[in-house]
Amino acid sequence: MTDTDTTRGPQSEPALGEANRVATQVIENVERVIVGHHDEIEHILTAMLGRGHILLEDVPGVGKTMLAKAVAASFDGSFKRVQFTPDLLPSDVTGVNVYNQQTETFTFQEGPIFANVVLGDEINRAPPKTQSALLEAMEEEQVTVDGDTRDVPDPFTVIATQNTVEQNRTYALPMAELDRFMKKLHLGYPSADDEAAMLARVVSDHPIERLSPVASVEEFRRAQRTVSDVTIEAPLREYATRLARYTREHGQLGVSPRGSIALLRAAQARAVLDGRDYVVPDDVRAEARVVLPHRIRTDTAEQIGAGLVRTALDTVPIEE
C-alpha cells in the first residue's frame, strides 16, 4: 500500500486505544529483554506498525537477533533467521518445491522468509541475486517460486543487518534496494550502566526464554490497520514534501517519493504510539532522522546523509 492520503473521520476510540496499548506493551515487553536502546526499540515498533522493514547496521554482538526475536515473541509472531553468506542461493531464502515420491507431486517447502519477523543477518555478504530475492519479498509481500506466487505471512517484517566491520567479500546494497528499507538504525554499544544491568540479567538465565506474548497476531494486525488510518492533514504533507525537496536540492541524490511515503507512514505509527489519531510535525521530525538519511547520497560518505537531514530539519519551515 502506497496510499497516504488523508483518511478523515475519527477512529473509534477503542481501535486507537488498542493499537496504542499493543505498541506500548510490546515495547515494554521487549525492554525486559533488551536493556537500554529505548529509542531504537520504539523505532522498530513504529516501523513494523507502519508495515516497514528495518536495516540495522552494527557491530556483531549487540543483541540484534535477541531484539528481533523478542519483538516477534511479544505479539506471538513467528520468527526466522537467515544467515546470509556468499554461497546462499535465492531458494535458500524463499523455499523450494520438493518432489514427494509418495504422492508423486511437488510440495513447496517454505523458506525462512515465511515468518512474521525475518532476521536477515549480514545481508551484504550474499550475492545480489539472493539479496534481491529477499528485497522482492519485502516490497511485494509475496514470493514466486517456479511460477507459483505465495503470500508471505501478515504481519511481515524484515530486519536485515549489515556487517560494517568486515568489508571483505561483501556486496554493498545498491541505493535502489536501500530505499526499500523504511528505516536504518544503529544500535551501538549499550552504555556502561545498561551493559552492567544487562549482564546481571542475562548471564544466569536468559529472559528471552521466558518471554511471553503480550498481544496476539490479530491484535497486531488491527494495530497496523489503525496506523494506516491516522489522519495526515495537508500542512504536514506539505512539510514532508519540503523536507524531501530540500534534500534533493542539497544532495547528489535526495529523498525519493517512496522515502516521503515511508516518512509519513512511520509518522502515523508514531502518532499512534503517542495516542493520537493525527500526525503532528513532531512525529515527522522524530522519524525523519531515521527514515531519510540512508536514502540520500552526498558526494562523500553516507554518514553525511544524516547531517543533511539535520540541516533540513533545522532549516525547512514547518508552516509556510
Binding site: T6, T231, E233, P235, R276, Y278, V279, P281
Partner: peptide, 9 residues
Amino acid sequence: RERARYAGT
C-alpha cells in the same frame, strides 16, 4: 490548535 490544524477537528 494542533487538533484544528493537523487533525482537522
